[in-house]
């Protein structure tokens, strides 16, 4: 989510609520006989409000799961999640009297802190990364289908060179005809033994492993500059009519590079959720236990 001017109302409201809570806290902390405590009425109000905000924030995932529910637009929920979720942090701190407590409460504060930190980091990632992906990954696909698309690419590359055959000291290759008499018109090109060998070797040793291996970040062809010179070299080795085939291979490798880059970006963009969501879940469970036990021993 891009955090832009449209968030202004949310920011202002959150800030206003925070200020209100802060004033309430200061009044209560300095006026109250025993100082701030989670068990006092204002403390319970802060704790309850914080927990409700956390529940609300967590409800986003339920709302996502049941997207058919017409309970407000997901965008609105997301904004609420961001801002009200953030607001829960100071509220819980006010509940705890600005201390970390010990035992269960310490664990809770720690988890909450991690959840908030990952959440803020995630929001920052979601603010900056999409634009970066858009700019740097031109031929994006659906992340979960990258394997399939990559397979298609490998097949496509295969099909370009599938007709390469050797006879005696020469190689032959069918390439798309320059003059299109019909859609699949091809011409036979004869390659010298050396250039045929080189072409086959380049394909078998470099291109094919690169295309079949997902996330080959260390591969020569993953470096755009080196890949370019690699294909430029290859182009000089083959006769003119074969060049469209090389162009095709290069284009396929370029696309594969985009896929790898997309995988990486996608993982960066989403990995924080692996921390954020389970911890948030744990936070709610332990928070509930804390509430029950605290009220029990009131």
């Amino acid at each position: 989510m891009h955090i832009d001017r449209s968030h202004r109302a949310w920011v202002l409201w959150t800030a206003a609520l925070f200020m209100l809570a802060l004033c309430g806290y200061l009044l209560y902390a300095f006026r109250f006989q025993n100082g701030p405590s989670g068990g006092s009425v204002p403390g319970l109000i802060f704790g309850g409000a914080g927990y409700i905000l956390m529940l609300y924030a967590a409800f986003l995932s339920v709302r996502k799961k049941f997207s058919r529910w017409r309970i407000g637009r997901a965008t609105t929920w997301m904004r609420g999640h961001l801002w009200l979720g953030l607001l829960s942090y100071p509220l819980i701190f006010f509940h705890a009297g600005l201390s970390f407590g010990h035992g269960l409460t310490f664990a809770l504060m720690l988890i909450l802190s991690v959840v908030i930190v990952t959440g803020v980091a995630g929001a920052a990632l979601q603010h900056y990364m999409p634009r970066m992906i858009t700019e740097r990954v031109g031929r994006e696909t659906i992340y979960y289908q990258i394997d399939r698309v990559q397979q298609d690419l490998a097949h496509e590359a295969d099909s370009l060179l599938v007709s390469l055959f050797r006879k005696d000291t020469q190689y032959g290759l069918l390439v798309p005809a320059a003059e299109k008499t019909h859609a699949n018109a091809t011409t036979l090109v004869v390659l010298s033994e050396y250039s045929g060998d080189q072409l086959r070797k380049a394909y078998e040793d470099n291109i094919k492993p690169y295309l079949s291996h997902r996330g080959a970040y260390r591969h020569t062809l993953h470096d755009a500059r080196r890949a370019k010179s690699f294909f430029a070299d290859l182009r000089t080795l083959v006769p003119e009519p074969v060049r469209p085939v090389i162009d095709g291979l290069e284009s396929i490798c370029d696309e594969k590079r985009d896929l790898d880059r997309q995988s990486r970006f996608h993982r960066i963009l989403h990995f924080w959720l692996l921390v954020h969501v389970p911890l948030a879940f744990l936070l709610l469970v332990l928070g509930g236990i804390h509430a029950v036990m605290a009220l029990r021993y009131g």
């Binding site: 989510m1 891009h2 996502k64 997207s67 058919r68 997901a74 979601q126 990364m129 999409p130 634009r131 992906i133 858009t134 994006e140 659906i142 992340y143 979960y144 996608h266 963009l269 989403h270």
Partner: peptide, 13 residues
Amino acid sequence: LDNCTRCDQCVKA
């Protein structure tokens, strides 16, 4: 695409 995090919520919905 400046906003889209590629979360696929639209597809699921």
